[in-house]
Design a binder for these strands. Structure first.
Lengths: 338, 338
DNA sequence: CGGCGTCAGTAACGCGCGTTACTGAGCAGT
DNA sequence: ACTGCTCAGTAACGCGCGTTACTGACGCCG
């Protein structure tokens, strides 16, 4: 910077003024031009660290997530990353490989937060790979923190979660609209927030159509393709065709839908002609490659990530946020299984 | 830090000495203990930026990749991230959403590199989502740079790539070992490095068994499930069962294998009893969820990421690196399709 | 007793920048 | 001629830390 000043025959202060775009600058247009030229000529590149030190603000946010590489976490990160980039901020991503906050290496998560705080991030994002309650390391309280795809077990921190209920509703509405009135549900572990919300939405949609959810048609299984296969088998084999057998399956996630596909095809049935299938999550690698491609409800990970950064921006700017818990819509993705 | 010094009744220098673990410290054990205690009591946390500024080294590496969220890029990032964490370094991830370096917003990639340099990263990683030649922004030359899963079109920068040939070899060796001698190949675009290497490995393995690759059995298609389906259909329908029809399919990626599964099942054939299938890439969401689970050759993304960081560490330490282009093994993952 | 080498610790500088308080020139108004 | 004001720009401080050069006390040797 001193070199630039010398080259432009001005003081370092003048250079600083020009580069930080002060509005009450009092730098003549000609001088400014000379300075910018010098910057170009010398290939000057500001030092972000020094800038942060002097200005007492880093323009950095940090994000911590249990499994950085989980397909979902990735989308959250992308959304946050892109939004941060737009806001000319940098997103620091700290790894913390552990599925369960009460797991063995609980320390790693704390260390990650600690590391981020050492970098003097102005805010923290904490993301989970599936919708649930979490315990956040306490040092996170030193800085504004927003939870994504999870909520604070202690209820203190603002959070952003998918609107599971509306999602379940839109899925079932789509099936109803296609003429199905007898719908089987391939359920997740019934206790997790995702299952609770989605199933409630399902019931609401049915109720609006004057229908009720037949408990016989709701079968839970592991959240895997195998689990979906088994659950679908049980549903399909419960009744003969036409005599109470559902004509559509609402699978509460795409992995289970994948298994359900196999169960259906195995029985010589066609999708969607004989049995329609709708999934949830929009796990691209599955949904878009199944044959036929799977109609599903998307979890809005990127949107949640972006909203997280926006919320953080409000928070750090001292503005109030709209709500303690913000819900994001889960859009229906039409493909060919309904 | 001044507070800590005051609390421990020593100079700030003494605190600095203790915290940076200088071996020629000349700080008595008792004083050191007093200082560390003060750190605890006051909850002091060093400022990474200031430290970087003063010490003239940031301990930061940067990574740029075209599509941060591509399933492959993610694994590379994870490998690099973990290794960096072990080396007590921070990995800054810069987004750059573009598949093609000659694409419309070429500027974004340059901006990403620029941003990283402003953070004063000590080294740069540049990762591609599929193995190929790339052009790296020229400002990357200002700092040690290592390419991952790609190589420099100009041949200047060190790179790390998968050993496609050995991978193709191990895949076909596995099929041979299972007793298959007539093997169909569901090929990618034959011009890309992945296809060239894998097919060469395939030929080598066959040659060692005294066999030759029948050109009739090699069919190219789009690198998608549909492409794989079509290619597999053409291979299977070329000969009647037993009369020249291959008993195994080597699919050059897992997405195509996914399509091949459908083609095989459609014809009433069982995997692996009637037709064995082996894939490539180990795209977890596909390979581990197909039924039966797909035996495949894994692309060593995490290893490449980790090796990239290690190479960068050598480079920044001024040490020579082992080779201009390092190849990483592609291990066979046995599942149930062979 | 003087000189010399540890040991334990400190004062002071500088990293690259943002920022505040100041200066000096020019000009209008009384 | 003097005051007051705006414009254009500068000197100097401090952000939090690493690092170098120094000091003062103590013990050992000749």
């Amino acid at each position: 910077m001193a070199d630039v000043a010398k080259h432009a025959r001005v003081s370092r202060t003048a250079v600083s003024f020009v580069l930080s775009n002060r509005e009450n600058a009092s730098i003549s247009a000609e001088t400014k031009h000379r300075i910018l030229e010098a910057v170009q000529v010398l290939g000057y590149r500001p030092n972000a660290g020094a800038r942060a030190l002097a200005s007492q603000r880093s323009d950095w946010y940090g994000i911590v997530t249990e499994i950085v590489t989980a397909p979902f976490a990735v989308d959250i990160i992308k959304g946050a990353q892109d939004q941060a980039w737009l806001d000319r901020r940098f997103l620091l991503i700290a790894p913390s490989d552990q599925a369960d906050a009460s797991g063995p290496n609980k320390g790693m998560e704390d260390a990650a937060v600690e590391k981020l705080l050492e970098q003097r991030v102005e805010g923290l994002l904490y993301a989970a790979t599936y919708h649930r309650a979490v315990h956040v390391p306490k040092s996170a309280n030193e800085v504004p923190t927003v939870l994504i795809n999870c909520f604070d077990a202690d209820g203190k921190l603002p959070s952003i979660v998918p609107d599971e209920r509306a999602g379940g509703r839109v899925a079932v509405e789509r099936l109803l609209q296609a003429g199905h009135s007898r719908i089987g549900v391939v359920n997740l572990d019934p206790d997790i927030p995702a299952a609770v919300g989605r199933l409630q939405g399902c019931r609401e949609a049915l109720a609006e159509a004057g229908l009720e959810l037949d408990p016989e048609l709701v079968v839970s299984g592991h959240a895997t393709a195998d689990g979906g296969y088994e659950a679908a088998c049980r549903i399909l084999d419960k009744y003969p065709a036409g005599a109470g057998r559902p004509t559509a399956l609402f699978c509460l996630n795409d992995r289970m839908a994948m298994g359900a596909y196999d169960a259906i095809k195995e029985r010589g049935l066609a999708i969607p002609q004989d049995i329609a299938v709708i999934g949830f999550d929009n796990q691209e690698l599955i949904a878009a490659y199944l044959r036929p491609k799977l109609t599903t409800v998307a979890l809005p990970f990127e949107e949640m990530g972006a909203l997280g950064v926006q919320t953080l921006a409000s928070l750090t700017a001292g503005q109030p946020i709209t709500a303690h818990q913000q819900m994001v819509d889960c859009p229906l993705l039409e493909r060919y299984s309904v």
